[in-house]
Design a protein around this nucleic acid. Structure first.
Length: 562
RNA sequence: UGGGGCGUAGCCAAGCGGUUAAGGCACCAGGUUUUGAUCCUGGCAUGCGGAGGUUCGAAUCCUCCCGCCCCAGCCA
């Protein structure tokens, strides 16, 4: 059968090609990957890319993916973050099973490995202070110089290292360094520090240690201890690959995982670094890590993004080695694609304008049947009340409207979705301000359900809610957090100066259909003709609903007006 | 001026010596539509950072050049 366009499979990215090849040649029977977050902040959309890559490969190739906390710097890390990270990974739809690890699990082994390194004359205790060490390191273009402690006898280094462990020295007085090559053009090879003294309480090991291993020493050994096959990291670690390999070669570990680097995600109109996100949180420029404007996983979740939409986004953007900037529109599109299929349709008016249907009987409430999803009959239908007074969207009325405006104007007829055709007869305005207060319309009783027996057509269908039964609620609309594509681009301007002052607008007079009165937090719906909205998980209460706009519908009319 | 990485459309991204240079986003033009949504159809790189070269044939191989990103934490 001929493959249709829809059936064309996404080609394998370069990492999956490597994995495929390693499986084919028998280098590995099954791939083992890991997602190694440092528990010093919340996960964001950039991490989602890595999570989808690592867990995705494990799932696709029948392997496994470990969740390992890279907790080697207790001065920045907290167990609260450990919890949120686990929640986020799980929510995204991935499962590490039994494979939950911490680099701190390996502190004893790491210490032994360090001793082994000293004994092999591949590491030494250096007693230069930080400033001296910087001088000895050289620069990008000049080689470094050997530390005067480089040839310290093995026994002396061993004893000092023991002393460091026992807390006999001040922070900064000694470090353990790998003995590699001070003249290497790759600065990371100029006798890198692998252990430093830190008199800091660790969230898991407590006060057991006062020396902590550095990333370059810890990460490769952790990977090896877990029999990881493919250690995937971002591009900035490419320079570290030689150390990764050096440590594992010198120490002769049973397995030697392959480090492969890929480009991190950049999204336009946002910042991605944990440091900056934390700044926004701590300076109350957003309401928290889970502020719906934040591109954190928890922010996206609260905003109404589904796990499937984020996974789809990650699949769509692909994996490569180029620095790239993904347009926000791609993320939004992923949300629409998923929500379009799963979100029930309801009616809600963001900016209500009262309409009195003058020829409709007073004190009558009629049942109107409405489909929950016109394209999916399985989602059923619901009943809406209809009465003499309703609310419509203020933007659905325009005086002296142009011909192409398919909505209400005096003398024009539109369809109220699922209900009746109405024709606008007159406008009631505030005498001084000229503001439109309400519309008087007439309805055609023959058009119940939305079709005219005489076959007459209307171009426009608008949404509405019955005034008496409508539920008043708050709806929060979000815009991009920053005004420029790359808030970090200009080094002379603080990224916070680019914050969009209008990134949040809260509408409190909104009216939604009564079926929503008991909507559960986290529920996603489509307000027809408006967009996808989600019941806020923090601030929404049964008697005061709060909706977040996840993303608006495409709006070719708004585009045309520009 | 050291080392590492990367240049295919406005934004991503396939391509792995012979294809009309996939696909998605965006955009444009039509069709369907009781959501100006969705859906459907079509359009959108004589061109692959530039210049040379190898070859019957180059985005793919070679040379030189240009541009962008990363590295001088006792962060990861």
């Amino acid at each position: 059968m001929e493959a249709t366009k829809k059936n064309i499979e996404k080609p394998l990215d370069f990492i999956r090609q490597i994995v495929t090849e390693d499986l084919r040649t028998g280098k590995h029977a099954t791939p083992v990957t890991r997602f190694p977050p440092e528990p010093n902040g919340f996960l964001h959309i950039g991490h989602a890319k890595s999570i989808c890559l690592n867990f995705g490969i494990a799932a696709e190739f029948n392997g496994r993916c470990h969740l390992r906390f890279d907790d080697t710097n207790p001065s920045k890390e907290e167990s609260a973050y450990v919890k949120s990270i686990q929640e986020d990974v799980t929510w995204l739809g991935f499962d590490w099973g039994e494979n939950l690890f911490y680099a701190s699990d390996y502190f004893d082994k790491l210490y032994d490995f360090a001793v082994e390194l000293i004994k092999k004359e591949k590491a030494f205790i250096c007693s230069l202070n930080a400033e001296e060490m910087r001088k000895y390191r050289g620069t990008l273009t000049e080689p470094g110089k050997d530390s005067p402690y480089r040839d310290r006898p093995i026994q002396e280094s061993l004893e000092l290292f023991q002393g460091m462990k026992e807390g006999r020295f001040e922070e900064g007085s000694h470090v353990l360094r790998a003995k590699i090559d001070m003249t290497s053009p790759n600065l990371t090879l100029r006798d890198p520090i692998i252990y430093r003294i830190m008199n800091v309480h660790h969230h898991r090991t407590g006060d057991k240690w006062c020396i902590y291993p550095m990333y370059d020493f810890t990460h490769c050994l952790s990977d090896a201890l877990e029999s990881v096959t493919h250690s995937l990291c971002t591009l900035e670690f490419a320079d570290h690959r030689p150390i990764y390999d050096w440590v594992l070669d010198v120490l002769e570990t049973p397995v030697h995982p392959q480090q492969i680097e890929f480009a991190r995600l950049n999204l336009s109109y946002t910042v991605m670094s944990k440091r900056k996100l934390m700044q926004l949180v701590h300076e109350n420029l957003v309401t928290g890590w889970d502020d719906p404007r934040m591109l954190t996983i928890s922010g996206l979740r609260r905003r109404g993004y589904t796990p499937a939409s984020i996974r789809e986004f990650c699949k769509e953007i692909g994996i490569g080695k180029r620095d790239s900037w993904i347009d926000m529109g791609v993320l939004e599109n992923a949300a629409r694609n998923d929500l379009n299929v799963i979100a029930p349709r309801v009616m809600g008016v963001l900016d209500p304008l009262k309409v009195v249907i003058t020829n409709y009987p007073e004190d009558t409430v009629e049942d109107i049947e409405a489909k929950n999803h016109p394209q999916n009959p399985d989602m059923g239908s619901r009943t809406l009340p209809f009465s003499r007074e309703i609310y419509i969207e203020r933007s659905d009325f325009l005086e002296n409207a142009p011909k192409k405006f398919f909505r209400l104007d005096i003398g024009r007829e539109v369809r109220l979705r699922y209900a009746y055709f109405i024709t606008c007869v007159s406008v009631v305005k505030d005498e001084t301000s000229g503001e439109v207060l309400e519309l008087h319309c007439t309805y055609d009783p023959e058009t119940y359900g939305g079709n005219a027996p005489d076959g007459r057509k209307v171009k426009g269908t608008i949404h509405w809610v019955s005034a008496a039964q409508a539920v008043n609620c708050e709806i929060r609309l979000y815009d991009r957090l920053f005004l420029v594509e790359n808030p970090d681009a200009d080094k002379d301007v603080n990224f916070k100066d680019h914050l969009n002052p209008n990134s949040l607008s809260s509408l409190t007079e909104c009216m939604v259909e009564p079926s929503l009165a008991n909507a559960e937090p986290g529920t996603s719906v489509q307000f027809e003709r408006q967009g996808y909205f989600c019941v806020d998980s923090k601030d929404s209460k049964p008697d005061s609903l709060v909706f977040n706009r996840t993303v608006g519908l495409r709006d070719s009319w708004a585009k045309r007006k520009k």
